[in-house]
Write a protein that binds this DNA or RNA. Structure first.
Lengths: 130, 130
DNA sequence: CGGAAAGTTGGATTGTTGTCAAACAAATAG
DNA sequence: CTATTTGTTTGACAACAATCCAACTTTCCG
């Protein structure tokens, strides 16, 4: 697997970050990462109702924008938020976005365990609520 | 001219705002509005090197997202930031975006008067710098 | 070694976006 | 009333983005 390139902190661009965060699916992933320091790709993509490759594409978008870090270990890849880098580059931005997301309409259902009742919410369903 | 619809404060969606702000041209417009309370469409679009209709399209995007207010008076339309509404809905968000924009690479050149030397900067050129 | 696991990559499709140009609409100035 | 000003709207087009599926790569487990 090729090295999974990340932008240097000083190369993170505001427009890229905003665009990366403007998708409901990615926003949900980022929110999940904010709550649980580190996740594998599979865990971060749980309950999204999206194809594996689609989620992978979202990781790439977030990584390219400088929002998340992908650290490979064995055959797993651990994802984490680049909180410090983002804070250094755009103070307060990530915090306000996450706070805004938490205050959004009924998205609490997404945080429940994989086998909880209530059915799956698709990406489209997410879009309705954010 | 049709009424130019604006979303109610509670209907402003985070993803829409982030997407609206993720374009360099719109970010510049928003920045300009942040510095000079109210502007006509023509004034807000000065020095962008873009076609009139293109800029109008950006206004629409910003308006639909709930970022700006378009108030018609006579044959002019005055644009202003919906600061209070945005602050009520997503506290701190606009502020951190504006602060991040101001700290970005050499965009100061855009603020100079219309006839200043140095040539025009196109939308593409803006994109390079943000 | 052979198969499963965890992800990425490439192609195809469908939909959205940024841009220009030309046409339109409404208010104002001569 | 006619022409000008100030913007919007519509159409066209190329570029981009979100999604799925199939194929591939690497690593790990028997």
């Amino acid at each position: 697997m090729r090295p999974l390139p990340h932008p240097a902190t000083e190369d993170i661009r505001l427009t890229d970050v905003l665009r990366a965060l403007s998708d409901p699916v990615r926003l949900l992933i980022v929110h999940k990462l904010a709550e649980t320091d580190e996740l594998t790709c599979a865990d971060a993509g749980l309950d999204l109702g999206l194809h594996k490759s689609t989620v992978s594409h979202h990781y790439r978008t977030l990584r390219d924008a400088g929002v998340i870090l992908s650290k490979q270990e064995g055959r797993k890849i651990y994802l984490s938020l680049r909180r410090d880098d983002l804070e250094a580059r755009f103070p307060g931005l990530l915090g306000s976005v996450l706070a805004a997301f938490r205050d959004s309409p009924p998205l609490a259902g997404f945080a429940r365990p994989p086998s909880a009742p209530g059915g799956d919410l698709t990406g489209a369903a997410i879009a309705e609520t954010v």
